[in-house]
Design a protein around this nucleic acid. Structure first.
Lengths: 197, 197
DNA sequence: CGTCATGGTAAGCAAGCGCTCATGTCCAGA
DNA sequence: TCTGGACATGAGCGCTTGCTTACCATGACG
């Protein structure tokens, strides 16, 4: 399945993207120099501009690929569940798992949008609206079946996503908990947040 | 009540801190120049260095004051409630309210810690550990009374705080919901996350 | 062999950065 | 009136930044 507006990165490009994701995740877009990225990738400072026109384009490519992956995770997880309760559980579990495992990329995805150009930002915002929509639809389905009881599906959808998004801020794989531990816990929390008694 | 290690800012200092908080909140520490801060405060570029030795010291002062305020909010809210359920509700409500109302400062407080010097970072980390401790103790009190049922108080405390912290990322006062709306909703969500059935 | 596309580099430019310094203004107290 | 200290500023220094340019190594293909 071809993605529109973006070809698959070559090995050299992927190496730059990986290095940049690490740097952006640690120090942020503005805190990272093009020389930092080159050093992380063990290449010369000029090589970035052989493959990408600007530093911002590198950020955009990381952000775009990350958002496409995150949206796919949400859709696949929701489709796997039978009842809305199961759908929400899968969705919360997999979304948390991705944020815990890929917390470096997740930080770039969630916290560096402000450094994108207006055009790139709008393209990413479209993907984010779809992520919210997938979550909201699961909640609304649960309201129809009566499994869920909640006042504000839009706000609650944001809250469910917030739980996992914030993992990018504090979760580290060197800590006490493994990504799987957190994901299991967050599945329960999400269901509790919305379940009818 | 005197605070240790920091005197009250003069009016001129407060003006610089307010301007810097707006800039740091919008573009991040590294994305903000000292000239941006001066322009926002309607002062000359050099005035920053009359009152603070470095740009990082301005960030630290904003961060320190913000963390002291947030910790005070958590402690006051928890003390106000009678039962652990009421304590958690007050805590989640007030914490969310502060993050929604002061979302610009909240972004600096939660997302710019990495730009602090190691010494300053450690001082802030102490305050953050206290914030987690206050929350965890409320959860543990609810476990004792049997009002709450949950497997991992430490992780759940982080999750409760995460909900509000992430408001700084997406909440804007220009949107559909008022800070009070979100705070009321988040009070309910926090209680649902931990309540025994 | 010569040609050329691919993918890399060393050196450096113009602009912007954090920060400094000599100087000026204001006002309380002698 | 004179003096000293607090506060503020215009000009600019030394360095780093994103990015450019001219050039080079390699290997597929006629």
């Amino acid at each position: 399945m071809e993605r529109q507006g973006a070809s698959e990165p070559t090995p050299a490009q992927q190496r730059i993207l990986d290095a940049a994701a690490v740097c952006f995740g640690e120090r942020g877009f503005h805190g990272t120099t093009t020389r930092d990225i080159a050093k992380q990738a063990q290449l010369s400072p000029a090589v970035l501009y052989v493959h990408y026109p600007t530093k911002e384009d590198v950020l955009f490519e990381i952000s775009r690929a990350g958002h496409v992956a995150a949206l796919e995770i949400l859709r696949t997880a929701a489709a796997r569940g039978g009842t809305p309760t199961e759908q929400l559980g899968e969705l919360a579990h997999d979304f948390a798992l991705w944020h815990a495992r890929s917390h470096a990329v997740a930080r770039v995805v969630n916290y560096e949008l402000g450094s994108l150009t207006p055009q790139h930002h709008e393209e990413i915002a479209t993907l984010r609206r779809q992520m919210e929509q997938v979550t909201r639809e699961v909640l609304e389905a649960g309201l129809v079946t009566g499994e869920f009881a909640l006042a504000n599906p839009s706000l609650t959808a944001l809250a469910v996503l917030s739980l996992s998004v914030d993992l990018g801020r504090w979760f580290r794989t060197t800590g006490t908990w493994q990504p799987e531990d957190v994901a299991k816990h967050y599945r329960e929390l999400a269901i509790r947040m919305v379940a009818a008694r």
